[in-house]
Simulated scan of single mutants.
Amino acid sequence: MYELTLVNGLILVGAGIAAGFINTIAGGGSMLTLPALMLMGMPADIANATNRVGVVMQSVAGLQGFHKHKRLDTSAMMAIVLPTLLGAAAGAILASWLPADILKPVLLGTMIVMALVMVIKPSALSPKEGTQSLSFSEKPSAWLGLFFAGAYGGFLQAGVGFMLLAAIAGGLRYDLVRANALKVFCTFAFSLVALGIFIYNDLVLWIPGLILALGSMIGARLSVNFTVKASMRTLEWILFAMIVLVCVAALFN
Rank of each mutant, 00 (worst) to 15 (best):
L6K: 05
L212C: 11
A92P: 00
L210E: 02
N23S: 05
I120R: 14
I211P: 03
L164A: 12
I17L: 05
G54Y: 03
R71W: 00
F21K: 02
L172D: 08
L103P: 00
I22N: 01
L134A: 08
I112P: 00
K139P: 01
L251F: 12
F66K: 05
A49R: 04
L195Y: 08
M1C: 06
A149E: 09
N48M: 12
L86I: 15
A179M: 09
A19E: 03
A15C: 09
S223P: 00
R173S: 10
A26L: 07
F162A: 12
N180C: 06
P127A: 07
V160C: 11
F188P: 00
S191C: 13
G14T: 05
S137G: 14
G171Q: 11
I11S: 07
L144K: 04
A115W: 08
R71A: 09
A179H: 06
V113I: 15
G153W: 10
S231T: 15
L32N: 06
G54D: 02
A26H: 06
G219L: 03
V117M: 00
G209Y: 12
L164Q: 13
A18K: 07
I168H: 07
L6C: 05
V224K: 00
L32G: 05
L205T: 06
F190M: 11
M163Y: 04
A166F: 12
G54V: 04
R52K: 15
I17R: 02
F155I: 06
M118E: 01
I218T: 04
G159P: 10
K183C: 04
A18T: 14
L6I: 15
G20I: 02
W206T: 09
S59L: 01
L146A: 09
F155A: 07
E3R: 15
G153T: 08
P35T: 10
Y2V: 12
A100W: 00
V113Y: 00
R233E: 13
